[in-house]
Nucleic acid binder design. Sequence first.
DNA 1: ATTTTGGTTAGCCATGTGGCTAAGTATCAG
DNA 2: CTGATACTTAGCCACATGGCTAACCAAAAT
Lengths: 116, 116
Amino acid sequence: MANQNVTTLDTVFQALADPTRRAVISRLGRGPAPVKELASPHDMALPSFLKHLDMLERSGLVTSEKKGRVRVCTLHPEAFQIAETWIDKQRRVWEQRFDRLDALVAQTEKDEIDET
Amino acid sequence: MANQNVTTLDTVFQALADPTRRAVISRLGRGPAPVKELASPHDMALPSFLKHLDMLERSGLVTSEKKGRVRVCTLHPEAFQIAETWIDKQRRVWEQRFDRLDALVAQTEKDEIDET
DNA sequence: ATTTTGGTTAGCCATGTGGCTAAGTATCAG
DNA sequence: CTGATACTTAGCCACATGGCTAACCAAAAT
């Protein structure tokens, strides 16, 4: 199950769209950990869990390195950037729109007052 | 294809994990639009496109209302909140950890100086 | 040298996703 | 009233996802 690190909006958002994977991210936020430890809170067989880890690696949010028989996983917070940037960009678009709506309402009210 | 609005981390992140759906969100950020207009830039059959819209509605990011034979879709930016909040929370965790690491490094350097 | 431990690989299954066509319904325009 | 428009419904297909078991391998522990 070897995979590339392709940090795209698709892979990052998809990685985040599952509670097991988000739990892993939360845990790794406090520091690197071996697969066994990461898997232990989740009630599923190891191979199933590994698929989740794999998706996290594909997204670039997590990398892992083998030390002896243990695989140690590490979080890469930079990979979140692409997602946050996209959301921020969207917010700027609609906030700008709301500002224009506000301005329009204000203008309309002003006009109505002028008419009285 | 009637569905509930269940705004969860799962549904929101999944809604965002596809370029077609993100494009729809971008477009709706500039204001409501009918299905036809939303679909036009995307090279796929209407029923395929409707599945994407459906997912957006399931996540609560979009709602729609039928006016005559036209279905008008509207963006609900509030639904992003849950995603942004989660990411922010994660960042706080790992930033705190980096702060501790920095402090540790600073302390170690101080100790080394004290030793000289 | 054996046995445990920590993964890994292969393969199976059910369900979901992302696409399609074909045929239907309801409104609006002429 | 007729036809075009804007979806809507049903159903099909291929591949991805999320889960499993069984069998394997290599490092660590005894």
